[in-house]
Simulated scan of single mutants.
Amino acid sequence: MPAAEPENVAWMSERQLARAWPTIRATCLDATARANGVRNNHHVSHSTWGELRWRGYHPADVARVAAAIADGTAELQPHWRNDTPEAKLLDKRLRRENLPGAIGCALLVAIGVAIVVTFLVLTWNASGSGSSSPSYWH
């Protein structure tokens, strides 16, 4: 019996996986793939800035699980989906937990903008105050 030829597979990226499974939360794509037996392949790239790692997913398995998600037979936790009451509660909790950070970021940006505007106003007033600065344009 001859050995099986290696199959040439165009592995799907996580972005493509998200498009194939639109009802699955982006943070739960890998967990869904593992729970449903989707073959994956780790890719590593080396560059000047260091090592980049990403995971590719087998397209036939992704299609099989997409059909299982559509007919309700996929192995899923309720909070992995976007359209369940558990997911809506999780979203609400995450927004509430992240609110202090969002307010802090907004205040930090506002303070930064105020400092820059103050600096520009002071610089503009100092240069246009009628002082006898030499003119280089004759």
Rank of each mutant, 00 (worst) to 15 (best):
A3Q: 07
V9F: 01
A10P: 03
W11Q: 05
M12K: 03
M12A: 09
M12F: 00
S13E: 01
S13R: 03
A20C: 09
T23A: 14
I24F: 00
R25V: 07
A26F: 04
A26L: 10
A26W: 04
A26V: 11
A26M: 07
C28M: 10
C28D: 11
C28R: 12
D30L: 11
A33T: 03
A35H: 02
A35V: 02
N36D: 02
V38I: 07
V38H: 02
R39T: 02
N40I: 08
N40W: 02
H43A: 13
S45W: 11
S45T: 15
S47G: 08
W49L: 11
W49C: 07
G50N: 01
E51D: 07
E51T: 15
L52T: 15
L52K: 15
L52D: 12
R53N: 11
R53T: 10
R53D: 09
W54K: 13
W54M: 13
R55D: 04
R55Y: 08
G56C: 06
Y57T: 06
H58L: 05
P59K: 05
A60G: 08
V62A: 03
V65K: 05
A66W: 02
A66T: 09
A66S: 15
A66G: 15
A68L: 03
D71A: 09
D71H: 06
A74D: 00
E75Y: 07
E75A: 15
H79F: 11
W80C: 05
W80A: 07
R81W: 02
N82S: 11
N82I: 10
D83V: 01
D83N: 05
D83H: 01
D83F: 03
P85L: 07
E86V: 14
E86S: 14
A87T: 09
A87N: 10
A87V: 10
K88D: 10
L89T: 12
L89E: 13
D91S: 14
D91K: 11
L94Q: 08
R96S: 14
E97W: 09
N98Q: 15
N98K: 13
L99T: 09
G101N: 12
A102C: 03
I103C: 05
G104F: 03
A106I: 05
A106E: 07
L107T: 08
L108K: 07
V109C: 04
I111A: 14
G112C: 02
G112P: 02
V113A: 12
A114F: 00
A114Q: 01
V117W: 00
F119P: 03
F119K: 09
W124G: 10
S127T: 11
G130N: 04
G130H: 01
G130F: 00
S131M: 06
S132F: 08
S135P: 01
W137Q: 14
W137A: 11
H138D: 13
